[in-house]
């Protein structure tokens, strides 16, 4: 159990890192989908009680939404809007990867200082969650396209989900459903926004949005 959870967490973090170094948009979407599936498996292994109905439900919800539905929507958007298939980073791939590595180290150091509730199953949960959140933010700020910002947001949400797992035993349903819904709404809105922007400006670069300031 413990081993499997550790594998899943390491995989999650590594996917976030890989995401920072991936050039193709659809490749990025694939990685995010894979991360969604990994996260979906996590509730089944992280808690001592194992396979409860609730854990299964969360898992199914996560897999359905983040593994299947959201990537489908995004791929659809890529096809429809005919976005160029490259990520166009503001910060180059190698610097992003190096920053990602530094973030990992910082997350581990910070997690060591956080007051963590006792009885926690996997010591990796907090640092991985922190690192995933920070990498999601990094992805959001360092990439030009609106779509990659959605991806960054998703990764960020994944980090929050991990944090939510930490406290999920003490807090009932609300949190998980809230997180899932949040993401869904976000993607929905972003999808519409992307459509709109590309229709108005023939481009989905967010830096063109600065034209709106007048």
């Amino acid at each position: 159990m413990e081993q499997t959870a550790q594998f899943l967490l390491v995989g999650t973090l590594f996917l976030s890192l890989a995401l920072l170094g991936t050039a193709s948009l659809s490749g990025c979407v694939g990685l995010v989908a894979l991360q969604g599936y990994l996260l979906a498996l996590l509730p089944l292994f992280i808690h001592r009680e194992g396979l409860t109905a609730r854990a299964l439900l969360i898992a199914a919800g996560m897999a359905g939404l983040k593994g299947w539905l959201v990537p489908r929507v995004l791929l659809h958007a890529i096809r429809e809007v005919r976005i160029r298939r490259e990520v166009e980073p503001l910060v180059g791939y190698i610097p992003s990867l190096l920053i990602g590595g530094a973030i990992t180290v910082v997350a581990f150091v910070l997690a060591g200082r956080l007051p963590i509730p006792p009885g926690l199953r996997s010591g990796l949960l907090v640092p991985v969650s922190l690192a995933t959140m920070m990498m999601g933010l990094l992805l959001t700020v360092s990439r030009l396209k609106a779509l990659t910002q959605v991806l960054g947001y998703l990764v960020f949400e994944n980090g929050i989900f991990l944090f939510g797992l930490l406290v999920s035993r003490d807090m009932p349903w609300l949190l998980e459903m809230g997180v899932l819904l949040d993401v869904f709404v976000a993607v929905f809105v972003m999808g519409i926004v992307i459509q709109q922007i590309s229709r108005e400006f023939d481009s989905i670069h967010t830096d063109r949005l600065t034209q709106l300031k007048e």
Binding site: V10, F14, G21, A23, L97, T104, G123
Partner: peptide, 23 residues
């Protein structure tokens, strides 16, 4: 131009392994 990226990814993986081992 992509080769260095993959190598940096390998460095990150190894650094991550160090973090795991240090915990």
């Amino acid at each position: 131009t992509r080769v260095p990226q993959v190598l940096v990814l390998a460095v990150c993986a190894a650094a991550f392994a160090v973090m795991l081992a240090l915990k």
